[in-house]
């Protein structure tokens, strides 16, 4: 289990990283390497060049800009877990971060690396979808913004183009009346999730956003989730949650196995209950 030969570049800044990424051959960006490392060793990927951006200070920058928290792509899970970045989600991101894999993974793994890898079972792809985050992407040609809900196309597939990297995640400040719930099902501590339920429910605004993750594809995002709560979002949303609607939703999304649907619906119901608690 040793990687096939590759060239290794460690650029000094984002501009030179983008230049290196524009080179010939297959280029992979490394930002923590917690998934890419094993994939290289198993020879599931064999890039010509690795561009390692993990150490770039520009990508560790964090700031609150207006109603958004802008988090550099190379901020680690542990940075978030340990409260080293401002909290605009009333602890939601901190709790998610603290349950990602193991501490050793959290020390090195980054939010940008995780999102770019686009593993359906990973926590951030579901979390940021539920939090209505926006991603800043940058290439040598320029920058663009993509909503998290539009970023992931499928398992290990995103809208990132060759030569393009994820630069930052922009998370809206959570409204004081919003309620957050996040539950995942793992067979053991640190294992990848088999089901994720993430909900952001604002009864005052009458809005709810529901994400069903770890579905072996991009997470299922329900932007206006009134149908899951009997047609409207009110303070009694927990008791209004309709598991049959969720089950139908999953069937329509192609989840044919009844036990799979049962697990996902259960996890979603528990996420809703957590939000109501």
């Amino acid at each position: 289990m040793k990687p096939a030969p590759f060239a290794y570049e460690r650029p000094r800044d984002v501009a030179s990283a983008l230049a290196a990424m524009a080179g010939d051959g297959v280029v992979k960006v490394m930002a923590g390497g917690q998934s890419l490392g094993p994939m290289l060793n198993l020879r599931l990927v064999a890039p010509d060049t690795i561009v390692d951006i993990t150490g770039l200070a520009e990508l560790k920058h964090v700031e609150v800009a207006g109603e958004e928290l802008v988090i550099g792509a190379c901020v680690t899970h542990a940075d978030i877990e340990d409260g080293r970045i401002p909290d605009v989600t009333r602890g939601a991101m901190q709790r998610v971060a603290s349950a990602i894999a193991y501490r050793a993974v959290r020390n090195r793994g980054t939010i940008g690396g995780s999102l770019s890898h686009a593993d359906p079972s990973a926590d951030w792809v579901s979390t940021f979808a539920a939090l209505c985050a926006t991603l800043s992407l940058r290439s040598a040609k320029g920058a663009r913004l993509v909503a998290m809900k539009d970023f992931m196309l499928g398992a290990l597939e995103s809208v990132l183009q060759p030569g393009e990297m994820l630069e930052a995640v922009r998370v809206p400040v959570m409204s004081p009346s919003a309620r957050w719930g996040y539950v995942k099902s793992c067979r053991k501590t640190g294992e990848f999730a088999h089901a994720i339920g993430a909900v952001l429910i604002d009864p005052e605004a009458g809005r709810a956003r529901v994400v069903i993750g770890a579905v072996e594809a991009a997470p299922i995002i329900v932007d206006n989730a009134e149908e899951l709560f009997g047609g409207r979002i009110t303070n009694d949303f927990k008791s209004r949650f309709d598991a049959r609607v969720a089950d139908t939703l999953l069937s329509k999304a192609g989840m044919s196995d009844a036990a799979d649907r049962h697990i996902h619906v259960t996890i979603l119901r528990r996420a809703v209950a957590e939000a109501a608690a």
Partner: peptide, 13 residues
């Protein structure tokens, strides 16, 4: 064929 699939109990289990 990897320890991501072949689960071993860890300290918390």
């Amino acid at each position: 064929t990897t320890l991501a699939d072949y689960l071993l109990p860890g300290p918390t289990e």
